[in-house]
Design a protein around this nucleic acid. Structure first.
Length: 295
RNA sequence: CCAAGAACUCAAUGGC
């Protein structure tokens, strides 16, 4: 913001790119009001918002769960003769999926088709994930098949969404099945795929398997992320093996990762579960010292 | 003056 003021003072005029970046910044901090202010500002300065500007705002509304605002904005776009593109529609579809309005996505798909736009891989992945979250595995798998039929082969994102769904449904065998299908198609699990599996097996108490995935990930040359560690830590905590969890906390720091709020609260919660309240407070202290505030 | 680069969408983790 201060840089912006500075630039205004120096009469440096911003272009659409810089405005878009600014707007995105405010959106990321849930400052929609500020973001919209810049939308006005840019127009006053004779800089016209483009599709990307609107896509950014649309996505922000969707992520905040304000799908109605997003749909309104979509209307505004057409009154301004700004043509929505595929990303616009993908963004809105994802917003609808997040809110569980799967039936509404069909309207958007029709509108897309009326405008001569075909769903791409992101559209499909968004829908596959949406149906998975709704518990409609059937439709998710149907779309997966349709992707292949239409020559838009599923990618690792598609499969990770499906694997996650199987894991969360408690069907680990099925999850591994999907993983096998993926590899048959020449796709290799990435960091997120492994994390999904680690989380799935951890939650069912199969820590040995979870740890194997963890090792496999490293063998594949992938660096386990904070999320991967967190998933495994959670698994050990669920079994009351807080010592194991604490070891992993050390490991991640050794690996140069910065444990986050989730890491600490998972272990603190675990310590509370085993009645080690003083250790829990102690860890909370350590966390605060590291500059992470409890929420 | 020319060229290059820079902005938007999909999958994973704890508690409440």
């Amino acid at each position: 913001e201060s840089v912006y003021e500075e630039m205004m003072k120096c009469r440096i005029s911003l272009n659409v790119y810089s405005y878009n970046i600014l707007i995105r910044g405010f959106c990321a901090y849930d400052k929609m009001d500020r973001a919209l202010l810049f939308l006005d500002e840019m127009e006053k300065n004779g800089c016209y918002p483009n599709v990307i500007t609107f896509n950014t705002l649309l996505d922000a509304y969707c992520k905040l769960g304000m799908i109605d605002k997003a749909l309104n904005l979509l209307q505004v776009m057409s009154t301004r003769e700004l043509k929505p593109n595929l990303i616009t529609y993908n963004t809105v579809i994802n917003g609808l999926c997040r809110e569980g309005y799967m039936d509404k996505t069909k309207d958007i798909l029709v509108e897309m088709s009326n405008r001569g736009m075909n769903p791409d891989r992101v559209t499909y992945n968004t829908l596959v994930n949406g149906y998975c979250k709704e518990g409609n595995v059937h439709q998710a798998l149907f779309l997966h098949d349709e992707m292949i039929r239409k020559g838009i082969p599923p990618n690792v994102v598609t499969y990770t969404a499906l694997i996650d769904n199987m894991c969360k449904a408690g069907n680990l065998t099925r999850a591994m099945d999907i993983m096998g299908q993926m590899q048959e198609r020449g796709l290799e699990p990435n960091e997120m795929t492994y994390t999904t599996l680690i989380d799935g097996f951890s939650k069912q108490g199969f820590l040995d398997n979870a740890f194997l995935f963890f090792r496999q990930m490293v063998e594949d040359g992938l660096q386990p992320s904070v999320t991967a560690y967190n998933s495994l830590i959670n698994g050990y905590c669920l079994l009351g093996k807080i010592d194991k969890a604490s070891e992993l906390l050390q490991d991640m720091e050794t690996a140069g990762l910065v444990p986050d709020l989730i890491t600490y609260s998972t272990i603190i919660h675990g310590l509370c579960g085993t009645g080690d309240l003083d250790k829990a407070f102690e860890l909370n202290e350590r966390m605060v010292v590291k500059g992470i505030l409890p929420d």
